[in-house]
Structure formats: C-alpha cells, structure tokens
C-alpha cells in the first residue's frame, strides 16, 4: 500500500503543480516582455474569479456569460492599468514598478469584495465534484481539468514566444526598449499586449482555482506560490514554469503526506519556500532561466 500512497500523492501533486504553472505563467509573461516583476498577479487571479463568481451568484448570469464578462473586464482592466499606472513608469528604475504592483495588489485586495461582497462564493464551471477513481488512485476532477487547461495554454504561450513573430518581438522588447524602438517596434503596444495576456491567463487561473477552492480574497495568496515556482523554473521560461510548478506541487503533496503527520501539520505551506531559498543559493537564475551573458 505504501507505494500506492506515494503514487497518489505524486499524481495529485503533479496536477496541482500544473495549476500553479497556470498562475505563474501570467507572471512570466510580464517579466519576459517588460522586465517588470508583477506582485499583483495573485490579485489579478482573485479579481477575475470574483467578477465571474459574482456575476454568476449575485446576478444569476449563466456561467458562460459570466466568464465572458470576466474576460472583457480583465482585458479592459489591464489595458487601463497599463496605460494609466505602468506606462508612465517606462524607463524608471525597476523598483518603482515593483512598488507600484505591490500597491496595486493591496488596493485590489481591499477593493475586490466591495462590489460583490466578501463572502466565499462557489464557482461552478460545470466540472463534477465526485472524485475520479482509477484503480487505487483518487483524483479531483477539477484538478484534472485545470491541469489540462494549463497544459493547453502553456503550449500555446510557449509556441507564441519561441516561434511567432509577435512573441519574438516581445522578447526583443524585454531585452532592450531602445533598440526595439530603432527596429520600428511599437514598444508601448507590446507592453499593453503583455498585460492583456497576463489578465487573460489570470482569468483562466481564477476559473480553475476558484472552482477548486472557492472564490474569496484568500485566492490572492496563490500569487505568493508563484515565487517559488518561477524562481525554481527561471523567471523568463515557459518550460521552467511547468517544471517549477510540478516540482512545487509534488513537494507540497509529499510534505503533506509524509511530514505533516509526524510534526502535526504546516510543513506543506513552507516547503516550497525552503526550496526557493535553496535554489536562490545555488542557481539564482533557476533551472531554465537564461543566465545573464557577460563577456569579460
């Protein structure tokens, strides 16, 4: 039975890990294209989920319509955000942008419940609740669906950055704003595109995680999980996000299954950060991040 327990923990850890990757990829999108670190990504996820769940429960929208509203909201929200808050900061020290996103995160945490109320709302995107039982293996359907959505969109984004012209231009913008301008690249437009994509990914994350854990301001804490994931995988790597997410997911599951019973719980929550600090000590740019090329 022991190996079955390990197997089950691992599989569920992998599924959770893919769902972490979905949150983390929004962060990487911003970092890759604007070189800015967005501390509000978890809040984006939360606000997207609150809008969708709020439209569905408070106003009785069908779930598809609620998701459509959420999508439009996130796109407009991020366009406005980029134009009003972040664009004026182009060329400023990166710490200014970081501080702005931290401020934004706190504002969103406060403002999120204003419109739709603070209570935890259910979010049902039509995934059944009964666990999938496959031999000795128990899996939550939403985890499977979430992992599937995550894999699909990560593949799309991976292709986008590596192969598509827009994606390459986006990497160029991240590399050097000034040079990009000289190439005729409209830097502002790519910034806007990056933030819009981050908003859309946040919506996907919000749907998946909202269905899994319910929708309230607690969801913003997911944003903190992003850091061990991206530090592990590399701040600017889509593949890194997947691998980082999977490692964190499995570590959490194993810690919860094997260590928590011994010490009375809690290790699940900090294991990812222990890993993060270890990675920072030995490989600061992550497993797949690009080392800064320095010619001496």
């Amino acid at each position: 039975m022991e190996w079955q327990f390990l197997f089950e923990l691992t599989i569920n850890g992998l599924l959770t890990g893919m769902m972490y990757a979905l949150i983390a990829v929004g962060f990487v999108l911003i970092y890759k294209s604007t070189d800015a670190i967005n501390f509000a990504q978890g809040e984006f996820v939360m606000i997207a989920a609150i809008v969708v769940a709020g439209m569905a429960t408070n106003y009785g929208f069908p779930i598809i319509a609620a998701i459509a509203v959420g999508l439009v909201f996130m796109i407009i929200f991020n366009i406005v955000l980029e134009r009003v808050v972040l664009r004026p900061m182009i060329g400023r020290p990166i710490v200014a942008i970081i501080m702005a996103t931290i401020g934004l995160a706190l504002i969103l945490q406060g403002a999120g419940p204003l419109v739709f109320g603070a209570g935890t709302k259910p979010l049902n995107i039509g995934v059944p609740d009964e666990p999938l039982i496959w031999g000795p293996l128990f899996m939550t359907p939403i985890d499977v669906v979430g992992a599937g959505i995550s894999i699909m969109f990560l593949a799309i984004f991976g292709w986008f950055f590596m192969k598509s012209r827009k994606g390459v231009a986006m990497r160029a913008v991240a590399d050097s704003h000034m040079t990009s301008m000289a190439m005729g690249i409209n830097v502002e437009r790519y910034f806007a595109l990056a933030w819009i994509l981050a908003g859309v990914v946040a919506l996907l994350g919000g749907l998946v995680w909202g269905s899994a854990i319910g929708v309230d301001t607690q969801m913003a804490a997911l944003g903190l999980k992003v850091f061990p994931v991206v530090i592990l995988g590399g701040l600017d790597s889509i593949i890194g996000v997947v691998v980082g997410g999977l490692i964190i997911g499995v570590c959490e599951a194993l810690a919860a299954g094997y260590i928590d019973p011994l010490v009375g719980g809690g290790t699940k929550d900090f294991t990812p950060y222990v890993l993060m600090i270890l990675v920072l000590m030995f490989r600061p740019y992550g497993i797949f991040g690009k080392p800064i090329i320095e010619r001496i």
């Binding site: 012209r165 390459v168 990497r171 160029a172 590399d175 050097s176 040079t179 190439m183 690009k290 090329i293």
Partner: peptide, 22 residues
C-alpha cells in the same frame, strides 16, 4: 549604435528577423 545594442538573449537569426519588423 556606438555601444552595440543587439538583443543579447536572442539568436543572430532572431535579431535579423526583428530587423525586418518594419
């Protein structure tokens, strides 16, 4: 540029392709 301003993390091919962006 006087001080080379290539996209350092991108390949030579990608750099040149970006030259055609316009």
């Amino acid at each position: 540029f006087q001080n080379i301003a290539l996209f350092r993390g991108l390949t030579v091919l990608e750099n040149l392709m970006l030259g055609r962006h316009v």
